[in-house]
């Protein structure tokens, strides 16, 4: 195929074009396909956030009450964070914990699902961390005793 247009023709048409964009067509991946990162939901990162809080205090030998005292929050808030990923933590509590952990509050706020994620890789890493932090160690005698007591209480409650 050969174009046969005069120079004057191009001058006229190009003057009309002026300074505008000309791109057309969408490739199959426009907009970019949803990636693993965006499939991670806030509740997923909250599991990681809870696991992190629990492991951090256990690493220090602290119980939930001690951490609550240090952070200036209620113990039930700590328990809620550690065990209830469906619950949205209070921003103030997350800020106070960040101060105790000596970590940037923004990162913890993101993990807690309180601000929009700007670091998708962090979110992925958080989910992996949460999955790997699940204990595979057998219960120690104290845990077994607590567990059996609780099962017994459940059985009695169910029997009433």
């Amino acid at each position: 195929m050969k174009l046969k247009r005069s120079k004057a023709w191009y001058a006229r048409r190009i003057a009309l074009e002026g300074d505008v964009e000309i791109g057309a067509g969408a490739p199959p991946c426009y907009p970019p396909p949803a990636t693993m990162e965006v499939r991670v939901k806030p509740v997923d990162t909250r599991i990681a956030f809870g696991a992190f809080v629990e492991l951090w205090r256990r690493n220090r030998g602290w119980d939930a009450v001690k951490l609550a005292e240090e952070a200036g929050v209620k113990p039930e808030e700590i328990l809620e964070i550690e065990h209830n990923p469906q619950s949205k933590p209070q921003p103030n509590a997350v800020n106070r914990l960040a101060a105790v952990f000596n970590l940037p509050a923004r990162i913890l706020m993101e993990l807690a699902g309180l601000i929009e994620s700007r670091t998708p890789k962090l979110r992925q890493a958080a989910v992996r961390f949460a999955a790997r932090s699940e204990s595979v160690v057998a219960l120690n005698p104290r845990e077994r005793e607590a567990f059996e007591t609780f099962v017994s209480a459940l059985s009695k409650t169910a029997g009433k």
Binding site: E17, G23, A24, A26
Partner: peptide
């Protein structure tokens, strides 16, 4: 025929 990217609509429509 074509599908214009949003910033280029002026070119195809007006020019």
């Amino acid at each position: 025929g074509l599908h214009s990217l949003p910033q280029a609509e002026e070119f195809y429509r007006d020019k």
